[in-house]
Design a protein around this nucleic acid. Structure first.
Lengths: 206, 206
DNA sequence: GTCTGTGAAGAGTTTCACAGCT
DNA sequence: AGCTGTGAAACTCTTCACAGAC
């Protein structure tokens, strides 16, 4: 299989959401054109993206909604649940614990860590905040698959170092800072400030 | 000036952060190589990105830190402050109000709106939650420049419709749904679930 | 006729290679 | 020597065009 681009994976996620909605409406078949409209892409793009993984449609008819949804779920790993560790029990952390879409897609935040002794032991949206010192052992015991970093930017690199040492392979980082990690570790960044800056550029440009 | 890619703008934001750090360290000059390392790019990329806007360096010496930082600030619109409306006073909204990096870069959330009568009038991190019905007039009065949507996905499209009608030109959306808007309105999406899905794909793939 | 699947063309982005300045 | 600035090459991603199936 040839290398799949990040853009393709992102679009698959969107197609998956569209398919879920069509499934709820009991629609059986969907054309690439229809899927494109709701997913914000073009019909060719949809077909090209899907063709990376196989042939799922029927010419003249389109794609079977349920089946395609299941297929994408398997590609993206949404057919199972993932255990997620959250580091940082601030207000962003709280928002992430309550974020419905995570649970909906099978991402379960099963442990929250913080380094602040004043927070450790407290209950945060149903989870007891754990001391970050215990992260390696707890991650092993609870079979945690991925980590979310939601700490201030000054702390982010040291948290990542700890996560790497504990064996984490994928990390979602919310701190607005560029983080270093060995190549076998994938870090994805959500930098909300950069998003606003891109918008402010837009307002400047015209 | 030729069209500037989104990727370039995003990288400028990162260079800006690196420059701010170098400035705090009182470093006067920086080479494209050094800027690249801290900003997660290559040195040619840095030079190419900057060359879109002019010639800011000196051959043999590099770029003047403060001056380049100011230049990028002007390009991105960070030399001024922007008034931001937040729609959705849930826990994500609360996290965004408290998010330091916004203030740091001059993005001031000056009003929070919600449609829930039980929330309207309450204080949220120092801001009184306003009724979303009053969004158009308040936006005008407070000269609000941009909007952040942090409502459940079922509400997002109607909120965007309202924002478009109120004359907003740029919107940052956190709801995990594809939104429709006229072409003159720029919507940027932060979909945290899709980020995790890309990571779960990574874990599946190897 | 409708719609998928895909090689080829096109557009856009990144990297290379090197001229030119300090 | 060290570093910027940039046309050209290489690469990647998207769109076109159309063959093939229903």
């Amino acid at each position: 299989m040839r290398k799949i681009s990040d853009a393709t994976i992102t679009r698959l996620s969107r197609y998956y959401r569209s398919l879920a909605r069509l499934e709820r409406k009991n629609q059986e078949m969907v054309s690439s054109k229809e899927l494109a409209q709701t997913g914000g892409a073009t019909s060719v793009q949809v077909r090209k993206d899907l063709s990376c993984f196989g042939q799922f449609g029927t010419r003249g008819l389109g794609y079977p909604v349920c089946q395609l949804k299941e297929t994408i779920a398997h590609i993206l790993g949404l057919h199972r649940t993932w255990n997620v560790a959250l580091v940082g029990a601030g207000s962003l952390g709280a928002a992430l614990i309550s974020y419905k879409e995570f649970k909906r897609q099978g991402f379960h935040i099963v442990a929250v860590f913080d380094k602040d002794p004043a927070k450790v032991g407290k209950n945060k949206r149903g989870l007891i905040i754990l001391d970050i010192k215990n992260l390696p052992e707890v991650s092993r015991e609870l079979k945690i698959d991925m980590a979310i970093v939601a700490v201030p930017k000054t702390e982010a690199q040291s948290v990542v170092n700890l996560l790497v040492q504990a064996g984490f392979k994928v990390i979602l980082n919310f701190a607005p800072v560029n983080l270093m990690a060995p190549p076998q570790v994938t870090i994805r960044n959500v930098n909300m400030a950069i998003e606003l800056e891109a918008l402010s550029y837009r307002l400047m440009a015209n």
